[in-house]
Design a protein around this nucleic acid. Structure first.
Lengths: 330, 330
DNA sequence: AATCTGATTGCATACGAATGCAAATCATGT
DNA sequence: ACATGATTTGCATTCGTATGCAATCAGATT
């Protein structure tokens, strides 16, 4: 590297101790007397020495690196989650590596991730292929799926209680007198969409209600706009729409107002899911279901570290409570 | 690690060659005959071997890791930039490490970053302390400031031509007949704010115009909303506001409409800076200055790799062209 | 003072791959 | 068949740190 790489041997020489002593000084819980520790720390300070994390990782087998895999960051929920997750990892002494995937390059990404000897993997996009998780799990590296559930025995999952969340929305629609209720789905293969929809339907059925209309926006802003436009082009309009996430809900609201000149919530109520910061903004005031990114991150990291530290082998699924945030869009 | 760590020695044994041969097979440009290479690759495939990037980094001094430092991801420009930057780094064979900083922990973050032997550093938030960049530069690791300029001789910079961008906005306001023109600033210590404002003023002055009002929102959504409210509470209202970035501009538009019942652009024109995806959304239709995250990322990575590969030592500043995107908000 | 116990210390080795060097192999020309 | 040069190969060492082991030391006990 740079000309001046300071090694533990340099510090040892200056402090007149062995290299082992230096190493032990920087290894919590190792056997060093107070006096040598002080000498070493003084010498280290003087030379500006810090242990090389890579060498340390090699010998100890503890790279302290965790991979975070995301597919896209345009949906505002993911940046917020990413930020929280990174901070949580850092606080616990881990270093986050970021891997952005595309549908085509997932194999390549997994390979690279293994190259770097990461100690754990957080898969954080509802649309990521799930056998990817299995493969890593089988290779012995702890995996946690964030905001997604699968019943693979090797994968930990952390998600909000999407079923309960969907149900809350349904009940809110019913309680506020809506009757022609529609759903705009996210990716049909995702557990989030499946559970939110199931919960939603289960909240409608006790009142004898069924979906008045249904379409799929695949969790994309543009697709949501386009299917919403089709839905509103029909003769019999819904009076409420539950959209599978906030990001699409914004598109739906825009279409309702701009393309059809209708009012939210007077003509059509709209609810979303996630409670991204933008949901509280002026023109949207979106009623939605809050997922705490903080709780999700904390729990994900906890599951990982428990497995890394060998406290637990079997995978767990944690379902966090969902909270309905009522604003003016519904 | 996991029980089954496959090493180059294992592959060597199976392929009946030396460990060196295995290493050379995976080192582009090394001296290996075609036949041994094939044998090695076959053996590697059979065992599922991949070179340990950490060991490789240690001996070669090439960790192939680049640190990306961000302060916050709520301003939608940063996630987009982060995503592009990560992808560009990956494509060029580098692995991005993400460091989220807070004002308090920047020293700590720099230390950790050095621990991991990163080969370069991208500093990507206008509000990050600039001596941080200097310190890293002095330690011999290439640094590039993204979306920010300083005149430190060790730091590369990549930014859009903020001066030109600000000027474009001013000219657009003037050309559309605005006369009482206000500015809402971002962080006063940031180069982006300084240059955008200078450019803006330089676009006004030839027409005998000066700022009708000015306030500072520090690049925060909430602060922008609150200073906009004060500005609009005055008796003599502006008829156009240039807001230093889109993220704040959204807040300003919301305040104009919701709190004061005024129309955009009829009563007050609003322009932003960045062209984040949300700028194109229905209720905003924000006129703004586009910064190409793609061009910024490409150039940042280019500057870094040039220095890493030793092709260049002195730091450079790249200023990318700014493009005015006219929508309906101004 | 002699012995024992527990805490410190240094030595030597290991982690996994890259690389300078010299030996071995190959291809080529005579 | 032999000499020459060009490749290919393996050996041994290296990167910077952690750690088992044996040696040393300090302190307590009799």
């Amino acid at each position: 590297m740079g000309k001046g790489t300071i090694t533990s041997a340099d510090v040892a020489r200056l402090a007149k101790v062995s290299q082992s002593a230096v190493s032990r000084t920087f290894t919590p819980g190792a056997s060093v007397s107070k006096s040598t520790k002080e000498r070493v720390l003084a010498a280290a300070e003087e030379l500006g020495y810090r242990p090389n994390a890579l060498a340390r990782a090699m010998i100890s087998g503890q790279s302290k690196m965790i991979a975070m895999m995301f597919a896209y960051l345009e949906n505002q929920f993911y940046p917020v989650l990413l930020e929280r997750l990174s901070r949580t990892l850092q606080e616990k002494g881990y270093q986050p590596l970021l891997f952005m995937t595309e549908t085509g390059n997932q194999d390549e990404v997994v390979r690279r991730l293994l190259d770097y000897q990461v100690q754990g993997l957080v898969l954080a996009s509802a649309t990521l292929s799930s056998d990817l998780a299995s493969r890593c799990g089988e290779l012995g590296i702890p995996v946690v799926l964030l905001n997604r559930e699968i019943d693979d025995p090797v994968a930990n999952c952390v998600a909000s209680d999407n079923f309960a969340g969907g149900k809350l929305v349904a009940e809110h629609f019913v309680n506020t007198g809506r009757e022609k209720i529609a759903y705009i789905a996210g990716d049909e293969n995702s557990s989030t969409n499946r559970d939110r929809e199931k919960g939603f339907l289960s909240g409608l059925s006790p009142h004898g209600l069924k979906l008045h209309a249904r379409a799929c926006g695949n969790y994309y802003h543009d697709q949501a706009a386009s299917v919403a436009a089709s839905m509103l082009g029909a003769s019999d309009l819904p009076d409420a729409i539950f959209v599978a996430n906030d990001y699409m809900a914004f598109a739906v609201i825009d279409v309702i107002r701009t393309r059809f000149g209708l009012r939210v919530p007077e003509d059509i109520a709209v609810a979303g899911y996630d409670d991204v910061p933008e949901a509280a903004w002026g023109p949207y005031q979106l009623t939605t279901v809050r997922q705490s990114t903080e709780a999700m991150s904390e729990n994900a990291v906890m599951l990982l570290t428990e497995q890394i530290d060998g406290k637990r082998v079997e995978a767990r699924t944690i379902r966090l409570p969902a909270q309905l945030i009522v604003r003016t869009s519904a």
